[in-house]
Nucleic acid binder design. Structure first.
Length: 297
DNA sequence: CGTTACCTGAAA
DNA sequence: TTTCAGGTAACG
């Protein structure tokens, strides 16, 4: 469920709540063994006990809860995970899979209906993550950096945006929204974007992610913040899960198709399939494209 | 590259 | 009863 804006919202809320707080215990609830990828909660508990949280970082959709012993708890919420900070005596919640017991009786709970989420304890955050593309809201995410990640790819631009090795943190909501804002057809080959389209996409990615953060993330189904409250971004989406509604900009009917195995929402009038610029003059097969543009760096 | 599996509950 | 879901790894 949570994409970059949702995870960033959690990061911002969590840090002041847990910074300086000591962990007095960690436990896994029955049936949630996969959460730790095979490690036992007894092992994690013994390592965490007596440590205190310091800062909270984020890379893509991963959260890094830093500890004062230089280790880091890396959390991925996947589809339905959420972290809840709850004061002493707060009622139990369904689908709680793991609990960090803190000093003064407060708890940090990992709640996750579908049990896809993960928690790792490592020395460096990178140890718990695959290779990820650039952070789309960082200073070094320039239009050139974006193009470096997408050039030469034949896959649909929608699929390329969802691939965390290209750009980190974009998921299904914000991919559809960024493509709508930049007026790009989701099925256009990623490597086919022209310079003006690249600039538009780059700006749209940053705008849609920043809007998402500003509205505290999108709660379509399961996402909640550390207090269990919903975000507001679902009220501002232009196409996502608005199938058959009229487009805000042109009133054409928003369509839903499957791209890269994921539901994809777009306006067929605002985001048309781009016409080929070259006209076919003979039956001779077309020449190969510029080799530089088809080679992966 | 697209498809399937991982899980479980809500909505159609 | 069937379909669908803010994600990703492992398939073929």
């Amino acid at each position: 469920m949570p994409e970059l804006p949702e995870v960033e919202t959690v990061r911002r809320q969590l840090q002041p709540l847990i910074a300086g707080r000591e962990i007095v215990g960690f436990k896994l609830l029955p049936g949630a063994e996969r959460l730790l990828r095979g490690r036992s909660d007894a092992e994690i508990d013994s390592q965490l006990r007596g440590c205190a949280f310091t800062t909270v970082g984020r890379r893509g959709k991963y959260l890094g809860l830093n500890l004062d012993n230089e280790q880091v708890v890396v959390v991925h919420l996947r589809m339905t995970g959420s972290l809840r900070f709850r004061p002493r005596g707060y009622e139990a919640e369904p689908f709680t899979r793991a609990v960090f017991d803190l000093d003064r009786g407060d708890q940090l709970r990992f709640v996750d209906v579908r049990k896809f989420g993960t928690i790792d304890l490592v020395d460096q955050m990178e140890e718990a993550m695959p290779e990820l593309g650039p952070e789309p809201l960082s200073d070094d995410f320039t239009p050139e950096a974006m193009w470096q990640a997408l050039r030469g790819r034949q896959q649909p631009i929608k699929a390329a945006l969802l691939d965390q090795r290209n750009i980190a943190g974009i998921g299904n909501i914000y991919a559809d929204e960024a493509l709508f804002l930049s007026r790009l057809n989701p099925e256009a080959p990623a490597g086919s974007l022209r310079p003006a389209e690249r600039r538009a996409l780059h700006a749209a990615i940053q705008q849609t992610l920043r809007d998402g953060v500003a509205h505290g993330g999108a709660s379509f189904r399961d996402y909640t913040d550390v207090d269990g409250a919903e975000g507001e971004q679902q009220y501002f989406v232009r196409v996502f899960r608005r199938t058959d509604e009229p487009c805000d900009d042109c009133s054409a009917t928003i369509r839903r198709i499957i791209v890269g195995g994921r539901a994809t929402h777009f306006c067929p009038r605002c985001q048309p399939v781009r016409q080929r610029t070259r006209t076919v003059k003979s039956t001779r097969p077309p020449r190969a494209k510029n080799a530089r543009d088809t080679l992966k760096p």
